[in-house]
């Protein structure tokens, strides 16, 4: 399973091919091997500090996908059929885009893009060859809930604020800030996926449906506790955990 690498880091220039800068700059910027000077007066020994380079159009080996590669892969992954059939978090046409990365432990440069179809509650995985930009595999399944996107977090907050259960949140906001809640501007919201546990009541559909709990922070850094509330993004409703 990809463990038998044919390349290696040889000495010096032996491996300098596609990435001519690989290893050279940092090697030379460093103390020579055997240099016994660890810095003086409690200073840390030096490490190289290369200037950041502009993001390449295409990555190499285990490099993260570049912006260009992600853009190309997204275009290929969003097939006309998917764009027409699937629905996003607010019900609009097209699936909700969640993430793009190389296969986590693989060795190739294949972009794995994940989308959520709120119409069927299916997680869609589109595998795109990062070098050709072609869609090569497609998979989907229900009952799978990877982390929420920032957009899903924002929509979840909107759903909460529009629900009577937001009274608790607004009271907690007033307690924390000394001011009445006047709107979501300035709030920082993140979301984590909520899946129902056997003892849960009120949100037992979560897991099959896409649900989140929110972490809300005011502009000055205070957390407003809303951990007793679950937002069901699939059903567009809000529940309180018992």
């Amino acid at each position: 399973m990809g463990s038998y690498r044919k390349w290696g880091w040889g000495l010096g220039i032996a491996t300098v091919t596609a990435v001519s800068a690989f290893g050279i700059a940092s090697w030379q910027a460093n103390a020579a091997p055997g240099d016994p000077s660890p810095g003086v007066g409690g200073m840390l020994p030096k490490v190289s500090d290369p200037d950041p380079v502009p993001e390449a159009a295409a990555g190499t080996g285990s490099d993260a996908l570049t912006s260009t590669e992600v853009d190309k892969a997204r275009a290929a992954a969003l097939t006309p059929q998917l764009a027409a059939d699937a629905r996003g978090v607010t019900g609009e046409a097209g699936p909700e885009y969640l993430s793009a990365d190389l296969g986590l432990d693989g060795s190739g440069r294949e972009a794995e893009l994940y989308f959520y179809d709120y119409k069927t509650d299916k997680l869609v995985k589109q595998v795109v060859d990062a070098s050709t930009g072609k869609l090569v595999h497609s998979y989907s399944a229900t009952g799978m809930q990877p982390p929420a996107s920032p957009r899903e977090a924002t929509v979840a907050l909107d759903l909460l604020l529009a629900d009577p259960l937001s009274a608790g949140f607004k009271a907690a906001y007033a307690d924390a800030t000394g001011q009445a809640f006047a709107g979501k501007e300035g709030l920082n919201v993140t979301a984590h996926i909520y899946k129902a546990k056997p003892a849960d009541t009120g949100a037992s559909q979560c897991g099959k449906k896409r649900c989140v709990q929110l972490i809300v922070q005011t502009g000055d850094g205070q957390f407003i506790n809303v951990t007793d509330v679950v937002v069901d993004l699939s059903g567009r409703k809000v529940a309180r955990l018992s």
Partner: peptide, 28 residues
């Protein structure tokens, strides 16, 4: 097999006693 990673994702450093570590990093 491609090269392990590009220059920006490479860490290669030699510690004062002469040991060198070389690796690739990325964020998932």
């Amino acid at each position: 097999e491609p090269s392990p990673c590009g220059a920006a994702a490479t860490v290669k450093e030699t510690l004062p006693n002469g040991t060198t570590w070389q690796l690739c990093w990325r964020i998932n």
